[in-house]
Amino acid sequence: MPATYHLSHLRTLESEAVHVMRETVAEFERPVLLFSGGKDSIVLLRLAEKAFRPGPFPFPVMHVDTGHNFPEAIEFRDRRVAELGERLVVASVEESIRTGRAVEQTGPRASRNGLQTITLLDAIAEHGFDAAFGGARRDEERARAKERILSFRDRFGQWEPQKQRPEVWSLYNGRIQKGEHARVFPISNWTELDVWQYIAEEELEVPSIYFAHEREVFSRDGMLYAVSPFVEMMDGEVPFAARVRYRTVGDMSCTGAVESDAATLSEVVAEIAATDVTERGETRADDRVTEAAMEDRKRQGYF
């Protein structure tokens, strides 16, 4: 331990996140941790271990499954939660469609991304969750840059950016009315690079699709999409084999790959450090639809 009593920036961010998680479980009755199998929520699981071990997590882990996820991500999800010995709740978009709560889009640009909001809000209501940990970061997107760490949702699950509670020092106001809930973002202040450096430092396992691999893809709007039963190709779109990796893990219908040779964690970190495009700009079709795409989805109750 250095005599200067100095904490590195990554450990400072870690400590802040652990503090947020402990405040949340203390102030809310039924929290839940949203886990997608992606890198950000992988970090959340490690932070939960830091905050609550040797005890069990004081909350279950929930995945909103679109039914169009990468099989590698689903396999990883089940294995990771089992290793931790924690409880997994799966909320299914498929189920929401089957019961008529959500209506499937059709055509080559169809995506179940937007439908997740319905499934998520239904699951929150069904289980009576009053706080949901999410792995969103403020550096991801302009609307997220304005959101609080502890972000209030009204009884319709909606976010009102103009009516956010002031958030001062590390004093989080966790008081809500019945039916309302809070989204809690412990890694709000982390950047994409921070997340990868942390994964490397902590030697965390991530799904294989984050590393370079051979995949059958096709090009659309400057992005590379995986050829899959979930995406209909349009005229003129030709599949080809490429060495790619994913920077984000979302639904197969809206997440693009990048060409990459980064096959190890340190190569991924180096690639991120050198990149000149944001992860969402590069690989998420859902944020490209309109200039305020994320803001609109957030207002409706998206992650």
């Binding site: 990048v258 340190s266 690639e271 050198a274 990149t275």
Partner: peptide, 15 residues
């Protein structure tokens, strides 16, 4: 967008 990330890494050894 899709190509830039990979290209820049080569300049410096990843490790």
């Amino acid at each position: 967008a899709a190509q830039t990330a990979a290209a820049t890494v080569e300049a410096e050894n990843a490790a």
